[in-house]
Design a protein around this nucleic acid. Structure first.
Lengths: 240, 240
DNA sequence: GAACTCTTGTAAACACCGTTCACTGAAACC
DNA sequence: GGTTTCAGTGAACGGTGTTTACAAGAGTTC
């Protein structure tokens, strides 16, 4: 069954160990500790050997970002699957909670993927995670057909583009959305929800609220309620 | 008049040059380029000499954060002062615009101060900037006395603490706020506004919107309108 | 099985990094 | 004038990314 050569298997195994070691170093000691020599030390090899697998330290970090995105996506999917109620609002809430939980449990990973001024980071990876999560949720919410709240015309161009991206993402799940379900007002609210979700989580992870918040979770829940109501899931969810 | 010794003057001058060099390196080439040896090279001295001024590389970075916060505060104050209309809403809008403009013009500084998982960063510095800006604005908005929208009781403890912090900040400007002006609902909206402001700006600086936004400024303006209306400045501002 | 190539690793070297330490020379002080 | 204080030096230590030449085993070809 396995087409892989013995050599190919060994190579794949080593590569897996490299990623694993890099990840462990990031988690344990932060970005600056993810060193070629430290990784090599963990594997019992020398640093230059790593150049047989990655072109540079930077390339290895990029791969690390992709791995993190994939793992995060898996965690979010798992929490989404655990939410078995049919209510879409509950699912959205579950994913948002999962995102916050993941970020708080993996601050170094979060910082690397979501708060790096460098461009090469796996933005594509993350974007596809976002779409693959948002797509089905939106698709399963055809019932919640709300009025199109007006959006400034300056935003139309961007929102229409995003509308198309979302439509494509949903289409991969075999669902076609009408303009009334996926109207521009709702698109705008999706973007605004991401702004608030990301804002709260990043502020919490980085400790940049302007005062000490002793109990951030209910604050997050409250924001989530407001967000869900804005986006059209008001009645789905009982306040926890 | 100058009590400073010649030696003291020279020392102060050198310290200023160190900060300036560190800042230039950060801006030009990012956080990782802010190296003791690179700084020393810019000053024409050797790296160990810097230990006469800072205990470690880390201490120097902390100082850099403080400097950045101070400069950012100065930029925000300048833009606030340029907004001469009496309307408080316009002033809030001006400060928010200034924050976005500053962040986009100084992505490396923004990342260092606002998106570092490390604690030692100048969180105090930033908190005081926030309070010294928010304080007067809230103080000058006594007229806008809005009804207290209900806030979950779980949040009361934290919001009351923040209320006290804000009250103290405002008191330093010789203004005493009544509970009706600074009610918990409004406090909550202040926090939520910071979440949205930070969220939008960070997403824009780090390029983490889930799709390409060709024209983020009107999106920011639209969010600002919503924010100001939430917080009680609805009628102050004409949409730009 | 021998000869060959391809792959994976090594060791040495280069230039860079933070940090420590013993030192120099000049300014400041008494 | 003698002494202390202090900014700065040079050498050194162990760490880093990266390149280079080289060894040794795996896979392939005849």
């Amino acid at each position: 069954m396995t087409e892989a050569t013995r050599r190919e298997r060994l190579r794949a195994e080593t590569e897996r160990e490299i990623r694993q070691a890099a990840r462990a170093l990031l988690v344990e000691s932060g970005r600056d500790a993810v060193t070629l020599r430290a990784i090599a030390r963990k594997l019992g090899i020398t640093a230059p050997a790593l150049y047989r697998y990655y072109d540079s330290h930077d390339a290895l970090l990029r791969q690390l970002c992709d791995d993190i995105c994939a793992d995060m996506a898996a965690a979010l999917y798992a929490d989404l699957a655990a939410e078995t109620s049919g209510q879409v609002g509950c699912k959205v809430r579950a994913v948002c909670h999962a995102f916050r939980r993941w970020a708080l449990a993996h601050p170094q990973e979060f910082a690397l993927v979501f708060a790096s001024p460098r461009d090469p980071i796996g933005a594509d990876q993350f974007g596809s995670v976002f779409l693959q999560l948002a797509g089905p949720l939106i698709a399963s919410n055809q019932a919640a057909n709300h009025a199109d709240s007006p959006v400034p015309t300056v935003l139309h161009e961007d929102l229409v583009r995003f509308q198309q991206v979302l439509r494509d993402a949903v289409a991969e799940h075999g669902v076609t959305l009408s303009d009334s379900v996926l109207n521009l007002g709702k698109i705008y609210h999706v973007v605004q929800s991401w702004v608030r979700l990301y804002g709260h989580v990043a502020l919490e992870v980085f400790g940049r609220f302007p005062f000490a918040v002793s109990n951030p979770e209910p604050m997050f829940d409250t924001m989530l309620d407001q967000m869900l109501s804005d986006i059209g899931f008001a009645e789905d969810v009982a306040v926890q």
